[in-house]
Design a binder for these strands. Structure first.
Lengths: 141, 141
DNA sequence: CGCAGATAATTAGCTATGCTAACGAGTATG
DNA sequence: CATACTCGTTAGCATAGCTAATTATCTGCG
């Protein structure tokens, strides 16, 4: 069952990702922007860690997003080494549209299922979320 | 619900991916190898399409996998322009181990759920699979 | 048959994304 | 207050993505 769940997640995201080029952003930039939109202002290292990437890689990603006006940087008032990155309104809007494209594909698929199947998935989603919390607080292996 | 399912899939794979560096292969190579292991022999273009990548990109990926002895190339008997790539036994073994690492993390998480939750997920997985078949045969958007 | 166009893989050359090593500025701490 | 640590950055390398163009082969049509 773990195998089938794993495979289903892979193929689901592979399908939804096909809508992303319409955003005009590469996958790493889109993903970094997403973290800033949903995760509030973050320092460079925290953002790099959230994206499972090294700090120098994130330096370039946020620089590109700044140039495109999608992200803004603010100084940290208490520590002058630190910087806080946040999404601009334009960045939020761009991300919202991209996310809507993905969700639309998924929602259309869900709408094609039978009512009982949708109800079953609706009950399964919270279990998945609980599973994720267990996996993330348990960093073994 | 589409939103939460989408988010759950992202975070699930992000967590499982953390075990991949142990394979010694980059993510694109690992993924291409996976397609060859599970999808049988494929031509270059078919493999590129499966990976949502352009042919020149796939040329370099398979070349690297060949150098590492994980993939073999055979001529197509009926069309001398074509080439057929397949995983070698070593490639299969490497992929199997990497997959086992991912599945082990997931299975351990599942084992920490309650029996009823696991049963619910077990019933939801086939519905997810049916959803995926619907999404893939319907390439709109 | 013969050749025009289509198709398969590749090469060339560019940009973007990942890394490690090393650095300067700022902070914390002995 | 000197030392060590942390944050962000730069430099420089390898990989991965793309488009455009090349070469080899096949297909179809007169």
């Amino acid at each position: 069952m773990a195998d089938r769940l794993h495979s289903a997640a892979i193929h689901l995201l592979r399908r939804l990702r096909r809508t992303d080029p319409a955003s005009g952003l590469s996958a790493p930039r889109l993903s970094a922007l997403s973290v800033l939109v949903f995760g509030g202002p973050l320092g460079l290292r925290a953002l790099a860690a959230a994206e499972q990437v090294r700090p120098p890689t994130m330096v370039r990603l946020v620089r590109a997003l700044e140039v495109q006006g999608l992200v803004r940087r603010d100084p940290d008032p208490t520590d002058r080494r630190r910087v806080r990155f946040r999404a601009t309104p334009r960045g939020r809007a761009l991300l919202r549209r991209g996310r809507a494209r993905r969700i639309a594909v998924l929602a259309r698929g869900l709408a094609g299922l039978e009512r009982r199947e949708r109800a079953l998935l609706a009950r399964a989603v919270p279990v998945l979320e609980r599973l994720l919390r267990r996996l993330s607080v348990d960093p073994r292996a």
